[in-house]
Design a protein around this nucleic acid. Structure first.
Lengths: 227, 227
DNA sequence: TGGGATTTGTTCGTATGTATT
DNA sequence: GAATACATACGAACAAATCCC
């Protein structure tokens, strides 16, 4: 009776992956009809999936105006990364308390997979980078923490799609390796610092870019007004 | 155009309140038909509300078996409170950095309302106690933090309904007052400690109670077997 | 084990609201 | 400003699965 995945589960997971892998860009409209047609189902299941995606912060639904891939403001983006760093520092702190052999093996296996993916499709690479952080959260065995970290990682992936460079490696595999090393040696201070630096550099790459994070229409037009 | 609340929004909020105010107890089945009839609407809107409630952790939906008010295990309950304490210590820390006059006013006004509610219906009192914590989170102006705290508070309210005493005052208004005081004096250490103690006592009241947190059927029956 | 009642999963038709010309 | 086109919101009915006797 292994809870067979529901139909909306599949749609939810699929759209979520598409957003995280940057196939669906922020702002893209998500009409229920088209999606339903794409998956060969009716609009009902699509709606449920969209509702769940909205609660994850990946989709924005406006009454009577439909759903679209979310477009976090720059302020929301900074906020999301702030909280993510806060949450993941706790993850690292907890993991340092006691790292099991299995946990170490799982993390190292994941990093190896990340490394292999570097030579393949970038979409897969992007996804795996995020899943490394989710795996760490899961290893704390705290469901709540895992839930919040997972949401944060998803949201930050979306933010990278909106503000980051499309082809960035996004998450250095080497940095992941260093974090594991610190965890294994149970150096809590170092591990937390490494994680914070790691996320800091990811967010900096995304948010401090000078290239038009938010097209300021007024500014653009004013420069044309003088011409 | 102040985004008029959707129909499912109303249902969502209503059921959420009913759960938080302990009118709907953990384990209560939530048949779509009955709920729809109660609100005078069809099952469609009800489903959306249930999906959202599920993602908040207040409701559990099992495929083909319907929805019911969630029943967190004792382990999940401890976990939820742990993370909540972690999150709210950050809320307090941030608020201590800079408390505006408006923020102080808002908090004090809320506490006064809580005090008034003490003499009224206990349901309202329970809800207000939780909303005090959500208000604090909002005052940090971090949407993400507010979202997670709000989820945590909801979940913990559900846990209190399941494991706590039904008539407990639940959240001491006095303790809320003390926290505000510490915030006003910007005593970060003290405020964080007070908040942690506050939540600790709430969770202890709920989770360390010796009276049948989880009815151990085997134990009960074995005592009868000897009679 | 089996059958009937109940509930969910899904689809489709209609109405309402929004955006566009 | 009005009318048209389009997408969503809502509701009713059918099909499938589960539960209970």
């Amino acid at each position: 009776m292994a809870r067979q995945p529901n139909r909306s589960d599949a749609i939810f997971a699929s759209i979520r992956r598409a957003i995280i892998e940057q196939a669906l860009k922020p702002g893209t409209k998500l009409p229920e009809d088209q999606i339903g047609e794409a998956y060969g189902v009716s609009r009902t299941g699509v709606r449920n999936a969209l509702v769940r995606l909205t609660s994850e912060g990946l989709v924005e639904m406006r009454p009577n105006r439909g759903a679209a891939v979310a477009q976090p403001t720059l302020e929301e983006a900074r906020d999301a990364f702030d909280i993510r760093r806060f949450l993941e520092s706790e993850v690292v702190r907890r993991l340092c308390q006691r790292m099991s052999k299995d946990a170490i093996d799982a993390l190292e296996a994941h990093v190896r997979e990340e490394e292999r993916a570097l030579r393949g499709a970038s979409a897969r690479s992007i996804r795996l980078a995020g899943e490394f952080h989710i795996l760490m959260a899961e290893l704390t065995t705290s469901k709540t923490l895992t839930d919040y970290v997972s949401r944060s990682v998803s949201r930050c992936s979306l933010i990278l799609a909106q503000y980051g460079r499309p082809h960035s490696a996004e998450c250095g595999v080497d940095e992941h390796r260093e974090i594991i090393e610190a965890l294994v040696s149970q150096d809590s201070e170092k591990a937390m610092r490494l994680m914070d630096d790691h996320l800091g550099s990811v967010s900096a790459r995304a948010l401090l870019k000078p290239d038009s994070p938010e097209p300021d229409i007024a500014a653009i037009l004013s420069s044309y007004a003088e011409g």
